[in-house]
Design a protein around this nucleic acid. Sequence first.
RNA 1: GCACAGGUGGCCGAGCGGUUAAUGGCAGCAGACUGUAAAUCUGCCGCUCCUUGCGAGCUACGGAGGUUCGAAUCCUCCCCUGUGCA
Length: 386
Amino acid sequence: MGPDRIVWMSSGFQVLQTSESGGRRAQLNLPHRTVETPVFMPVGTAGTVKAVPQDVLESVGAEIILGNTYHLYLRPGHEAIHRMGGLHRFIAWPGAMLTDSGGFQVYSLAQLRKVTDEGVRFRSHLDGSSHFFTPEHSMDVQIALGADIAMAFDECTEYPAERDRARESLRLTMAWARRSLDHFRAHQHEVPWQAEFPDRRQSLFGIVQGGMYMDLRRESAEQLVEMDFDGYAIGGLSVGEPRPLTLEVIAEILPLLPKDKPRYVMGVGYPDEIEQYARLGVDMMDCVLPTRAARHGLLFTSEGRVNIKNRQYAEDMNPPDPACGCMVCRRYSRAYLRHLMQAGEPLAATLNSVHNLAYYLGIMQRVRETLGKDAAATGSNAAVPA
RNA sequence: GCACAGGUGGCCGAGCGGUUAAUGGCAGCAGACUGUAAAUCUGCCGCUCCUUGCGAGCUACGGAGGUUCGAAUCCUCCCCUGUGCA
C-alpha cells in the first residue's frame, strides 16, 4: 500500500501528501515566507542562532528560526524591537520566525521564578531584577516582536512529576492557553508589519502538556483543539524522561490533533529522533542541540557522533563528515576544526554549528523528499490570506 | 662581590613541622548536552601493580647533609634565578 492521497487544506497550511505511517509533506504559508514541512527550526533565542550569521543560515536551508519572548523582552526589550520594525527587521532575517512564549523558562529558570495562577514572577538571570509574566504579557511581547508564529504561554512540566503536580501544572497551562488566545485575538493586528502585509496575520499555537500521564495529555489536546488555535504543539517532552516514553506521548497525541493544522513537537531532538518524529506526522521541531553541541565540539555526522576535540582527529585531514556536502565539509578538515576548538577560536563554534545545522536540515530535506516526491511542483512562496 | 627575594608535580602558583601524592588556575585527556542562565558543566590528570579499593608499592617540593618520632615546611653548605647596590 502506497501513501494515501488525501490532501488537507486550511488557511495557511496545505498538506500535500500523507504517508502510511502518518508522516505529512506539507507547506506552511506564513507572513514572511512559505515553509516546507516537516521542518527543523534552528533556535535563535536572543535574536541570533548562536555563532551563525543570517546569510549562512539561509545558505544551509533554514526557512524558519526561533526567538525567545523572555530573553528579547529583557534585552533589548520588545518595545524597542517594535519601534525598529519588529524582530525580522531588527535581526535582518527575512524568512519565517516563531517565538517561544517564555513557558520553557518557567521550567528552566525554576530557581529564579515563582508561579501563581495569575502568572510567573521571574528574577532576571541577567541582573536579578524582577519581572512578572502573564499570558497577556507574553502575547503583548510576542505581538510586538511580530514573529510569524507566537506560542501560548504555558508551563513546561518537569520530569518526573507526580500525577497531582502534573494535573495542577496542566490546569494552569490550560487556563493560560485560554487567556493567551483571547488576548492574542484582541491584539494580533498590532504586529509591527501589519501595514506592510495587511492581508497576512500572525499565528498562535497552543501547547499540549500533562506530564507523562496519557489521560492528562489527551484531555489537554482535546481542550486546546476545542479552543481552535492555528496550530498545536506538544511540549514538556525531552525533559529527562526515557526516550520510549517521549515517542509514546507523541504517537498517542498526534492523532488527536487536527490533520489540517501544523503539529509541532517542541525541543527535540537528536538526528534519529527528528527523523522518526517527522515520519510519524510531526510537522515542526526545534532544538538547541545542533548548535549547543556544536559549540561544545560535538558534530553529528552520517557516521555518528564525532567529538571533534578528541586527540584522534589532531592530524585527520578528512572532512568532518565525508558524506556531507555542506560548506564546512567541502572546505575544512577534522584536524582544523579540532585545532580551532583547542585554541578556543570563535570560528570553531561557527563552523561546527553550520555543519550540524546543515546536517539537521539535510535530514529533514531527505524526509520531505521521501514523503512526497511530487510535492515541489505545487510549491509557492505566496502567503495565503487569513 | 654584597644585600634582599626566590627555586613546589607540563606551566603558573598555594602550602611554611604531622589528616600532603601535596589547594587553586592553566594546559592536557575523556564524558555530558534535547521549546539555550550553556563558547557550559562533569570526571581524570607523578609512576607501577593488582583482588580496581576512600587498595598496595615506589618516586617527588633545586642538590647534598643535618635536627626531629615525623620535613616541601627548621638548620648548614653548595648550585641556580630575579631585583637592587657596587
